[in-house]
Write a protein that binds this DNA or RNA. Structure first.
Lengths: 253, 253
DNA sequence: ATAGATATCTCGTATAACGCACAAATTGGG
DNA sequence: CCCAATTTGTGCGTTATACGAGATATCTAT
């Protein structure tokens, strides 16, 4: 196998093991992880023991699980400096203004990753998503907006290699239809999705002008009933855009 | 060098590079990181390029910085499942009850790592700490409580190899005095620190009964003036303990 | 009890990570 | 503007080390 001399495969494998812990299973055995990462069981074991050694992973009996210590890896990013002082206040202020929790998300492969979230509890409904949660790309407003932010060809590639899960009866699964929707999102510069991920829940998202190559979006969600009011949707979009505009000034991304 | 065959040194080195990004410097060059990790420049470069390759790190010119994507590593821990649904609500409820932001922290080497935080903004003062922030161990209430939670010999080792930074005029730097304080914390099952980290700020912390080997604590902080009221301190401790008791039932740790 | 899956250990081998050393590039000071 | 100093990139020989096969032990389930 021709291998780039500038890239360490062992490190890659190790990280893939660490990343293999996802929401679906909190406790996994060596065999589980070995299957999930397509690595030899012996290799998986070595890498896991390495992770245990530094405390990122805990071994209880024959199962492994993440230790809270993994947060240090994210810590320097979330760290007080930039994020807590620049992004969070803006998010909170606008959340208070519009009375809804706002999330900031970026794309991670075929998921939308929540990077920040307003920490005011003014919203009446609380969905169980927190920083680090990974939501589906194709059935959520933030996900589709993220897709729309990508280069058309990149988005096409992602859409092509995707198997769209049908979460609710409303979920659009037809690739062509989905492609059209994403295109519309890109034109409109906003995305609205009614109950395609969770029934009765509507999401709204707008793009965030990120200077770097990282594309980010802002989103909110509430019951579909709330958005029935014809004004509500447009108001929310306008509010989110104001928030996005303000956030763009912080050069975090 | 005799090396444990079950541990991958390359993976360790890679993680140490990733972890070398801390609050102090957000943008670092290869040379910076090489110094910080005590790794050969060539090795550091390879590992960095590996991190860039999967998107955890971004290269802008000659400097490297963390990408928001590192959150996926923490994501599965913070992930919606347990944390968002079990810990967060309890934290929020008690925070609302006592009108102060509550933080949950564990120990990472010589720092206290904030793992969770109440997301209600009922408190009047907002310190710029968020999940992932790493606070000093010896000058904060949560830090000292974490030390007190450790085996006496472990705590002694940490204390011995530590250089205590004098953040404020009040900071206790004498190792013997510090040792005594930690011992007291262990007996009292609470820790109170007045303005040794930030002047005029008092912190209170209580231990969290963790079933695993991970020790965790709960803490709050407010102006020292607030705690002048003789009742206030005891009330806070009692409140925190109630929160800790409730949290102990969730078997997250 | 038996079978199947899983985990652990040992070990020979190939390889890939290492770090030296040199070259190229960038920076900073005078 | 130039020179010194630091930093970055590359090539390569060496060797440590990560790898996986196979054998053994341990657990799980029926």
């Amino acid at each position: 196998m021709e291998q780039n001399r500038n890239i360490s495969t062992t490190f890659l494998k190790g990280l893939s093991v660490l990343k293999a812990f996802d929401d679906s299973q909190r406790h996994m055995t060596i065999a589980d992880l070995s299957r999930k990462t397509n690595l030899d069981a012996a290799t998986t074991r070595r890498l896991l023991l390495t992770l245990v050694h530094i405390g990122y992973v805990r071994k209880t009996g024959r199962t492994f699980s993440l230790s809270p210590l993994v947060l240090v890896l994210a810590g320097s990013f979330l760290g007080a400096n930039q994020f807590g002082r620049l992004v969070q206040p803006v998010l909170n202020r606008h959340a208070a203004l519009i009375g809804k929790a706002i999330v900031l998300a970026i794309r991670d492969e075929e998921r939308a990753l929540i990077v920040a979230q307003s920490t005011l509890d003014t919203s009446n409904v609380s969905f169980g998503f927190t920083v680090g949660s990974r939501l589906p790309l194709f059935q959520t407003a933030i996900g589709r907006m993220l897709l729309a932010c990508e280069n058309p060809d990149v988005a096409a590639t992602i859409l092509a290699s995707a198997d769209v899960e049908k979460h609710t009866p409303q979920t659009v699964v037809d690739p062509d239809a989905l492609r059209a929707i994403v295109r519309t999102c890109a034109n409109d510069m906003f995305s609205v999705v009614h109950g395609e991920f969770e029934a009765g829940v509507t999401g709204v998202a707008v793009p965030l002008k990120a200077e770097g190559d990282v594309k980010a979006v802002l989103g909110i969600s509430d019951t579909t009933a709330f958005f029935q009011n014809s004004d509500a949707q447009q108001t929310m979009i306008d509010d989110l855009r104001r928030c996005a505009l303000e956030m763009a000034h912080s050069n975090l991304f």
